[in-house]
Amino acid sequence: MNIFRLAGDMTHLASVLVLLLKIHTIKSCAGVSLKTQELYALVFATRYLDIFTDFISVYNTVMKLIFLGSSFSIVWYIRRHKIVRRSYDKEQDTFRHYFLVLPCLLLALLIHEKFTVKELLWTFSIYLEAVAILPQLVLLQRTRNIDNLTGQYVFLLGAYRSLYILNWIYRYFTERHFVHWITWIAGLVQTLLYADFFYYYFESWKNNVKLQLPA
């Protein structure tokens, strides 16, 4: 475990906690895309099947359980909680799941390391994670008025992805650990999706004004 990987995991964890905190305490999911949250739940459910087959470390298992538990509880809150669900803006959150899920399924069937169920689901989850933020980014662009917590959530997720790339570079040089090129490409695509958001996030921070994305 290197510092980039740890920092990446911690920003990922922080992003989820910020979102849960917002939903749980303010009882509002305004500005949060249910589509993105459902895609993340699917990402974790398909990727972390290995908790039943492989043991890596206590840290690894605990983190996997946290990401599974938190993503499904966020979905539950937005869909089922009697107060939270009222703040869900269904009209704005119109991105279709299958636009992302079907191409990722197809791509996983075409480009993978091994043709086994577990490996295909893992590859699918890597592709899907790369694009799962899109409904959230579209929603931010549409609502324009972004509250602090939602802005921080997206910023922390972007930071997590950037730190993972530094982690792969570091692991390559120190451990000769090769991340498969599938992971590299998906990771780079995912990080690049945040570039635009990062630009406006830092601008608003520098000028000390409220974060707004251009229409």
């Binding site: 492989d54 470390s57 451990e175 000769r176 991340v179």
Partner: peptide, 10 residues
């Protein structure tokens, strides 16, 4: 490469 087979990242 067994290092690669074991997916130790999250």
């Amino acid at each position: 490469n067994s290092n690669q087979d074991l997916k130790d990242e999250l």
